[in-house]
Structures are given as C-alpha cells and as structure tokens.
Nucleic acid binder design. Structure first.
Lengths: 285, 285
DNA sequence: ACAATAGTGAAAAACTATTTTCACATCCAA
DNA sequence: TTGGATGTGAAAATAGTTTTTCACTATTGT
C-alpha cells in the first residue's frame, strides 16, 4: 500500500505536482505536464479528456491522482473547482473569510478578462495592428484612471517601434499636444470611466487634425466613439467596489504582442538594438 | 454540412438565456438567474449541482437546456468549456489564427492571475492591509515596467485614504525622495523584472530610514527581499514574448479593496468627501 | 540470464450523472 | 367546477465516467 503524504490534506494541485514531479513515471509525468501547462483546466476536464490530452489511458490518470495523495480523481477535481468558486450560494463552505475574498477577486478578474477578450473582433484587431505597425508616429493619451494604462502602452510599444510618445508632455498644454498631431498619426486614447469633463471634445479635436484614433473605453461612454477610427470596449465593472483593469491591460498587451509579430524582423532588430544599448550602459541590475 | 442543430447553432449561453428569459417558468428562471449571476460557472458545474444552486430538481435543469435549444445539458456544458480551453492539444478545432492567439493570450493572463493570487498568504495580506490602513504616510515607487503599477496603486489608495504619494516627485533626486521617509511610513515598492541597476540599494536605503516596505516582485529578484518587511511574489512570465502584469495589478487591487474594507466607515467618508468635491467642480463628464 | 518490481492499456466492474417517465399540482378558460 | 395545458419532483431507465483487474512490457538489481 502506497504511503499517503501526510499533510497533503489541502495543498493545491500545483504544489503536489511539483513535489512529486521528479519521482513520476513517464505516463504520469505527461499528465503532470499537461496540468502544469494549463492550471485551472483541471476544474473542467474529465479524467478521460485529461488522459487524451496527455496521450495516456484513463487508468493512468486515475492512478496519478492517487499517487498525488488524493482519494480519487473526483476529489482532486472538486478541490480545483473550489478555487474558482464565487459568491454563489453553492459553496458557502469552508474558506476563511480572507481567502474567500481572494478567490472572489480572482473570479472577478477572470470574468473581466474573459468578457473583454472574447468580445474582440479579429478583423478590427488586424486593422489596428497594421496601423500600429505602420503609423509614422503613435501618441498616447489617458486621464485619471486611464493614465497608468496609457503609460503602459507607451512603454510597451516603445520597446517595439520608434516614435511612440505621450500626447501630453509635462509642462505642455492640451492644445499644444493636440496641435502636434499629424495626418496619418495614430492616437491611442484610453478613456475608461471617470473620464474628465471635455473628454469627448478632446477626441473630436484629435480626429479633426486628421489623425486616426484607437479608443479604449468601457460601455459607459456615449459620444466619443463617433470620432474614433476604432473603438475597443473593455469590461471594468466588478462585484467589488473598484473597477478591474486587467481586461484593458490584456487588450493592450495583445496589441503590443501582435504589433511586434507584424513588424517581424524589423521589430526584432529594433528591440535588439535597444537591448545592446542597455547592456553598454549597464542600466539593468 | 456535418453540423446538426442548425437553428440555435452556436449562440452563447448568455444570449440564449436572455432571449428566453421572459418566457421561462418559475423553476427554470431560477436556473437562469444562477447562470447569469455566475457566468463561466456552467463550464464546471454538474447538472445536479446547478439544480441545487437554483433550488430545483435535476430534471428541471435537463428540461431547461433543451428549451434553450441545446441537445442536452452535456452539449451546453461543452460549448461553455470551449470558450476556456485554449493552447492545449485538446483544442485542435477550427479557430482562425488570430482568434487562436487571442485565446492563447487570455489563457496566459488567466494563468498568471491564478498563480499569483493563489500563492498569496492571507496572514501576510492581513498585516499589509493593516499597515496600509494605519501608516501615517504611504509612498510608492516603481521604475520602468513597474512604474505604471506604482501609479495605479497611488491612485487607488489615494481614493481611500490621505497621505499617499509617489516617493519620487518630478524634479527631485532619488536621495531627496528617500530622505523624506519617516519611521513608521509605508513604502510600496514595485520591482518587477527589468529593474534598474542599484534597485537593491534603494530598497536598503529606504529600510535604513526606518520605514516599513512592501515589495512587489517576481521570482527573478535576489537580495532586495532581505530589506523588505513583506514581499509579494507575482508571476509575470508568459508564453508570449512580453510579461503579463495582470497578476501584480490584481494583487494591488486586492490590497486596495481590503484596505478600504479595513478602514470601514472612515474610508467611506473620505471617499464621499472627494466625490462631493468632484461634483462641485464638475470635473467629470 | 533471471527474478522482482513497477508501469502500462484494454476491458470489466463499480459508480455517478443525466434523461425520461410518471403521478401529481397549479393555473386558466370555459 | 371542470378539463386541458403546463410545470414540477421522485424515481426508474439510460448514458457516461472512473476505478479495478489483469495480462503484458520494460527496467533494475542480483
């Protein structure tokens, strides 16, 4: 009879897998690989599907979970699901208040991510990416809650291509910043809720200068999209009192990743150039 | 055409529920309510669990999904799961390259979120939240990739309590900023990878001033945690070339949400005060 | 080379979940 | 009130999943 790991009681699946990994036989290690590569999937897979994914038999899956100290596959699956459980009356069970709130927050972040990213239209995305890759200049703008996102996208795109900068530089008036936009330039405007008064007219002004506009917003916006070339709608609302920006952040990362792909070798080269320069300056620790 | 159910085809569960909602009998409407309140849950629940959650019998659940146009509960569940399953060898389906990359990115973001948040220790969390609620002053710091996160946390905490500000103000040298730290103050230092040279010594200097330090990092860091009061380890690495910050962002949001809870009425009041001021200034559109 | 040990998949057995059936309750129109 | 239509849960029937068994293979130590 195989010894049970004493305190395996409530250790998360990932820890158990990591601990056992070294002593796992071939087939079971393949299962471990699938699991580590797709954490969270376990909550949804059946043993047979997991077996198919790992290229082993369902019998092996069954043995694998016993070796990890679970009573059965079913028990492991339930534990994995508990992670995702929400405020539903279903499992008013055992979690401590604090860790319950952690998993509630996790849940809300995942929901925001999913509903933002699945709403994305691949065709629009393609157009935007092309604009990002080819626009002579990219200027970014975001007020208040959106400002940090504008900074993020500036930094990310700045690593990929040249001529990316904030629309408003410190010490510059709004009018001056807008006046510097040219026809063909791309403005990435982030306007999540709690937009300042006059936001719409800023967007309108930029569009009047002939620049193309990518507007990142949420559903609370009304008029601004009329002036934008593309609008991406992010979900930000959550059950907690504060908005979640991971959806918007993920959209921006997606744009950066795709733009880099579009630039291909060119982008790669620029990136390497910057990297080499950094090395020389010993900028990083 | 090999596809069977032509009519309801592939409409997402949420749409089908909304469309049918009006004409749903009592019991089935209760199921609809559970589903709408916990989108994404369907992928993980069994029909019997869903029945228990809605307070109806499993027979009703079975009928409900047929009414919605699915062949069976099982088919609906599979459709819900398809949304989530991604880069795994399971999903060899016919996604376009672009939407495949969107779901890959979604997958990586969710992974980062999960592994960052599940690693969190509720006890440490509690200590940090208490410090955030009670410290006389909070100063934030983040370089490069981490800078936008520092801005985020500054803005969030600033909505909850007083005396929250960046450690480095424009036009100030690093030494000046650090010199202003007092004993008892809390420094929120974000140091995700690509830290500038000298990062460790900055942390050390702050700690020497007697301030408590919350360090938000990733696993690539080595020495700095020795000087920090608390360290939170975020996952940032992904399959794509760029790091994902949603994990760190979620941690920061969690801290803000919990701090607000800790402050209770006090926090509420400050928030309302700011809100009222804004109203008067007509700052928002 | 040969046991002994450990790992594996196929298939049978045990188990669990879903769908169907059926009897009964409720609502509404005649 | 009656009769029909509709909705419901309990339980039987069915469908599906997991665990166990067993025969076989590969590896390791003697």
């Amino acid at each position: 009879m195989p010894t049970k790991t004493a305190d395996a009681g409530s250790a998360p699946i990932s820890r158990r897998v990591h601990e056992a990994y070294g002593s796992l036989p071939d087939g079971e290690r393949r299962i471990a690989d699938v699991l580590l590569g797709n954490p969270g999937e376990l909550a949804m897979l059946t043993a047979t599907e997991l077996a198919a994914a790992a290229g082993v038999s369902n019998a092996t899956v069954s043995r694998f979970f016993r070796r990890l100290g679970y009573e059965s596959f079913e028990q492991a699956k339930r534990q994995a699901r508990r992670l995702r459980e929400t405020g539903s009356p279903l499992y008013t069970g055992s979690a401590t208040p604090a860790s319950k709130r952690i998993s509630d927050l996790l849940q809300s972040e995942v929901t925001v991510l999913e509903s933002t990213l699945t709403r994305l239209n691949p065709v629009t995305l393609r157009e935007i990416v092309e604009a990002m890759a080819t626009a002579p200049r990219i200027r970014t703008l975001g007020y208040r809650n959106s400002h940090f996102l504008a900074q993020y996208v500036t930094a990310q795109l700045g690593q990929i291509r040249r001529a990316v900068s904030p629309l408003l530089l410190p010490g510059q008036t709004q009018a001056e910043g807008i006046a510097l936009m040219d026809k063909g330039d791309l403005a990435v405007v982030i306007g999540l809720r709690r937009r300042p008064a006059g936001f719409t007219s800023v967007v309108q002004e930029i569009s009047r200068r002939g620049a193309r506009i990518l507007l990142i917003t949420d559903k609370t916006i009304r008029e601004a999209p009329a002036h934008a070339t593309w609008t991406i709608d992010c979900q930000v609302e959550t059950a907690q009192y504060s908005d979640a920006y991971s959806g918007a952040l993920a959209v921006l990362r997606l744009l950066a990743v795709e733009t880099r792909r579009a630039l291909g070798e060119a982008g790669q080269t620029y990136l390497e150039e910057v990297e080499a320069l950094r090395e020389r300056l010993q900028e990083l620790e």
